[in-house]
Design a protein around this nucleic acid. Structure first.
Lengths: 338, 338
DNA sequence: TTGTACGCGTTATCAC
DNA sequence: GTGATAACGCGTACAA
């Protein structure tokens, strides 16, 4: 396992390493024939410049780091594909890291990427992340970081978001317009901004339509299918049944759906369901799930563009928050059958 | 954006860089107090050794590259989590790249990782990949590469696999035992070994039970939902309906299911369905889909362990193929209702 | 047009 | 026990 280096090529052609280097970065004067010869020989020898050495020298790597909290659900992979679309064209390599919803891993990932001298990062925070001190230190040093979806209000940098409040409001109102009266909310873990926003929207929508909210209307869950299952089972056990549930995401909605069906409840006749951040799953399950679609690829592309702009315009940096539009896809799970 | 380097720390403490270095790699003699002081100051200054410089010097990076053809479906992400489980414990960083089922991207990804001096790679090939010359060159040079699932017979290296033939045979026999007679196969793209194996198993199972196969029994599809949809639509149009389909994977089975349901066919009464490589989807859709489960995490862990072993035992290398066990999960989509 | 020499941040080897 | 220095592979100012 031996990499061919610039020296090997130089020796072979009996010239200096700088000539080889010049042939590869043709901004300096070099005779065309020499260049062609060098490039040909290099190719034959399987030589290509070592990016690590280059990074060390130039203090940047042409690499972008992407850190996501998880990638089992297709949401983050889809965003990453959007990111790649833009970044690959610009000649950047993309290093993907996942934090497994663990703050410790996230911090490690960020530090590892920093050490790898990535030119910038695109981040989506874990459920656990509270302390963003280290990230802020990087930002203050002028290191380009773009956040998406799982953002932090404590970080002053580019952000790409859906208007969670707006779409959660629409989703809740949709249930109200369908005539549901006893509407519950599976709220996800507190501490994430988007769960807060969706919860607030839920509350405000109910208030607007003068529907009473009591202690049991809002149920704190996780973000996984099992969380929805667990809470639904509890409700059934307590015999405290809503006629509709707005869930913080599709996973919890699907968990609830599974348990409801298992227990003989009909959807939407007995309980209606609405999710959020739809995946392919939404239209495949039975009944198809009403949900808010996020423009995953566009989120990725936007984040990537913001990052590239910041990297290229080394000058003044004005943090920008881009709000993208979603869509409420109404399906059978929330339709009032008259 | 300036990294604190070993020199900064040396200057601050008015000692030489080698002393700092020694403090971090405590295998050389160094006074305990000096060491503690250095480590404390380094921490305060936010210094940590630059891995790129270390890699350059040591010609290895403590990083492992993982290249997968896609990660929209949860299969590959789950395998990656298994890989991480093992590798993070061993102190390796993991660089994930996805090829978007494109050979060009795959090759680029591999070369990028190679240039990043990863200590080894775990690969799963794209649908397109035929030419494995470059990868073989690396293997011949002693570069550790472990393949999983999407492997190539032309590469002489560690492989981690499911016994596709065996489980496809079981899956097909299951349909036969349920009493289905006109069984079709959605075969996926030719050229992948696992599609070949599953197809051969399908053929052999039918032969074993003396069920005739004609030209239309095996239908070449892609691997996505839309591929299953398209082929199912064609069948319906031609009015050439099987009473059961063994699909190369869940996605094509689900595509078929969607179209069947839309056209008023009942599953499994009119057409039974069996998939492969099950995901959460399988039990969530209606009716739940019979499928072969792959031990995703175990695949990842095994691949990672093989890789680490090869890296650590720099000696003789005997390529090993590990066959892991799957499981046929029988669900409603393939049960003969008597 | 090409070669020489330095530096990027480390670690290892040799002095002291 | 500590400091100086060469080397890893490369790009580039400067000299030739």
């Amino acid at each position: 396992m031996k990499h061919t280096t610039i020296k090997d090529v130089a020796k072979r052609l009996d010239c200096s390493v700088s000539t080889i280097s010049r042939a590869f970065n043709d901004k300096y004067d070099i005779r065309k024939e020499t260049r062609d010869l060098i490039l040909a020989t290099a190719k034959e020898m399987g030589y290509s410049p070592n990016p690590m050495a280059q990074s060390l020298l130039k203090q940047c790597s042409n690499q972008i780091g992407v850190v996501v909290p998880e990638f089992i659900n297709p949401f983050f992979p889809e965003v990453i594909i959007g990111i790649q679309e833009v970044l690959l064209k610009k000649g950047y390599q993309i290093l993907i890291m996942q934090s497994n919803e663990s703050y410790i891993h996230e911090l490690e990932n960020v530090k590892a990427l920093e050490n790898n001298m990535v030119d910038g990062m695109i981040l989506s925070l874990t459920m656990e992340t509270k302390n963003v001190e280290y990230y802020n230190k990087l930002i203050k040093q002028g290191f380009p970081i773009v956040l998406f979806n799982r953002v932090s209000t404590d970080m002053d940098t580019h952000k790409v978001l859906l208007d969670d409040y707006k779409w959660a409001f629409f989703a809740t109102e949709h249930l109200i317009y369908q005539g549901y009266k006893k509407i519950y909310h599976f709220s996800g873990p507190t501490g994430l901004i988007f769960t807060q926003n969706r919860k607030n929207a839920f509350i405000d929508a109910l208030r607007k339509h003068k529907i009473t909210i009591d202690n049991s209307s809002i149920i704190e869950t996780g973000l996984m299918i099992c969380d929805g299952e667990r809470e639904m089972e509890k409700l059934i056990k307590k015999n405290n049944m809503p006629d509709a549930i707005f869930a913080v995401n599709d996973m919890t909605a699907i968990g609830a759906m599974k348990v409801l069906k298992k227990n003989g409840f009909k959807i939407p006749e007995d309980v209606a369901l609405v999710g959020f951040t739809e995946t392919k799953l939404a239209e495949l399950i039975d009944p198809p799930l009403t949900s808010v679609a996020q423009p995953t690829h566009e989120i990725g592309r936007t984040a990537a563009r913001l990052l590239v702009d910041q990297i290229e315009s080394k000058g003044i940096f004005v943090p920008q928050t881009v709000i993208l539009n979603g869509r409420l896809n109404i399906r059978e799970s929330s339709m009032k059958l008259s």
